[in-house]
Each structure stands twice: as structure tokens, then as C-alpha cells.
């Protein structure tokens, strides 16, 4: 069983030290480039339901005293789907982290690209991947944390590009959804297919980290990349 969904807000609070959370680009919203039938009212309903403006929450804060940029996709907002706003926030956070020389951590939970913004959503895959790559090439540390579920255009863009790839236990992770695969091959998928443990076994995840150990693991990784206070051995 995948872990219970966690709101992006709760995830930020569980990851960053109390009192250090400073939200980034919170006012950023997308448009309705295609005037897609029903999109705006659906989006409004998602906003009312979650109290969020968009599916991605971004913040700067500290993990055990070490500064970091943390982004969290909320699977409860439009299935965590990526349209312009999500893509733009990821790109801005990568650029911000690059300018400030901060590590970037993104928790993903997404059904993929947001259909209602059409090719604009598709292009966010290219945009976020380009921004993350630029950040990484400049020496930035990008930790990607895959949570349940991470699929489609998010799995096929920034979420798969971590220098370090972490996953929560039993999260569904893959490009094509299980239903689509079952339709293609005409049989049911084996137990555990596309789950975190499967992804680790096939070489796509460094470690599966239980939720209660996530902050400790992130803290360890930041220290290992030199973000901790210099500790001189006596």
C-alpha cells in the first residue's frame, strides 16, 4: 500500500525547520491558453478545495539549519498536473537556487502534464528539464523525491533528473499509467509493477526512504554535499 497522500503544506512543514519557511512565487498563476471547455471553473473548484493557487508549492527554508529550496507537488490539486504555472515555478526555483547557490529538492506527486493547457503543458516538460539541467551543470545539487503517484509528463521530465533519486515506499512511478499498459498488452500487470521497489530494482532510484526518515536523509545528503557547518574533528 502506498502511503497516505500528504498535502504540499504538510510536506513543507515536515521537511523544513519550524519558523524558517518562506514561500516563493506563491502568486504565480497560469492562464487558459486554449479556452478549454470547463477548465477555469474546474481550476477554481480545485483552489477552493485545497486553498492553494496551483499544484506546486515552493519555499525557501532550512533543513537542520541548512538553507534549501524545496518544491512540493500536491496530488490533491488537479492531480498534481503540470501546466504553465507548475512548469514556470519549477524553472524559477531552479534559477533561484542557482543564483543563491542553494540545493533544490522537489517532491513529486502527479498524474502528468495538464491536458487542459494542451501543448503549453507539454512544453513545460522541455522547459523544466532545461532549467534543471542548467542548474545541475552549474554545480547545483538537485534531489528528486518521488511520491505516490508520479507518472506521465512529470515522470518524463524534471522528476527523473535528480542527482539523487529518492522515493517513498510503494509509490507508483512510471511514464505510462498501469491502465494504459494493461490495455496495450491485454493482460493485468504483476503485483508491484512500477512501484518504488520495482524502480529501485531496475536502477532508477538510489534509495527508498520511509516518510519518518525523509528529513534525516535529506539533511544527511545536504551535509554530504558540503552545505553543513564545517565540522572539524578534534
Amino acid at each position: 500500500m502506498a502511503l497516505e497522500a500528504m498535502t504540499a503544506r504538510a510536506r513543507l512543514e515536515a521537511t523544513l525547520d519550524a519558523g524558517t519557511i518562506c514561500e516563493l512565487f506563491e502568486a504565480l498563476c497560469g492562464g487558459d491558453p486554449l479556452s478549454f471547455p470547463g477548465y477555469m471553473s474546474k481550476l477554481e473548484a480545485q483552489r477552493e478545495k485545497t486553498g492553494m493557487r496551483e499544484a506546486l508549492l515552493c519555499a525557501q527554508g532550512e533543513i537542520d539549519g541548512m538553507r534549501a529550496v524545496v518544491c512540493v507537488l500536491d496530488g490533491g490539486f488537479f492531480m498534481g498536473s503540470m501546466g504553465y504555472a507548475v512548469g514556470e515555478k519549477v524553472a524559477r526555483c531552479a534559477e533561484y537556487a542557482m543564483a543563491e547557490r542553494l540545493p533544490l529538492i522537489i517532491f513529486s506527486a502527479s498524474g502528468g502534464a495538464r491536458m487542459q493547457e494542451g501543448v503549453v503543458s507539454l512544453m513545460q516538460m522541455a522547459k523544466t528539464s532545461a532549467a534543471i539541467e542548467r542548474f545541475k551543470n552549474a554545480g547545483g545539487l538537485f534531489i528528486s523525491v518521488l511520491t505516490h503517484p508520479t507518472t506521465g509528463g512529470v515522470a518524463a521530465s524534471f522528476a527523473s533528473l535528480g542527482d539523487i533519486m529518492l522515493a517513498e515506499p510503494d509509490a507508483l512511478i512510471g511514464f505510462a499509467g498501469p491502465r494504459v499498459i494493461e490495455q496495450t498488452i491485454g493482460q493485468t500487470l504483476p503485483e508491484g509493477f512500477q512501484r518504488s521497489e520495482f524502480q529501485q530494482e531496475h536502477g532508477f532510484v538510489d534509495q527508498i526512504v520511509p516518510r519518518e526518515e525523509m528529513k534525516k536523509t535529506l539533511s544527511q545528503l545536504l551535509r554530504l554535499h558540503g552545505f553543513g557547518k564545517s565540522e572539524v574533528r578534534a
Binding site: 516538460m125 528539464s129 507518472t151 515522470a155 518524463a156 521530465s157 524534471f158 522528476a159 527523473s160 533528473l161 512511478i173 512510471g174 511514464f175 505510462a176 499509467g177 494504459v180 499498459i181 496495450t184 498488452i185 500487470l189 509493477f193 512500477q194 520495482f198 531496475h202 536502477g203 532508477f204
Partner: peptide, 17 residues
């Protein structure tokens, strides 16, 4: 992209990304 089992096992998402 092909939505098949082997494609997923070998990292379809990672390859595209």
C-alpha cells in the same frame, strides 16, 4: 512512446527526461 511493460522496466520516463 510505447506504453509497454519492457519500456517501463527500462525507464521510458527517464529516457525521455
Amino acid at each position: 512512446a510505447y506504453p509497454g511493460m519492457e519500456a517501463e522496466e527500462r525507464g521510458q520516463g527517464e529516457a525521455i527526461a
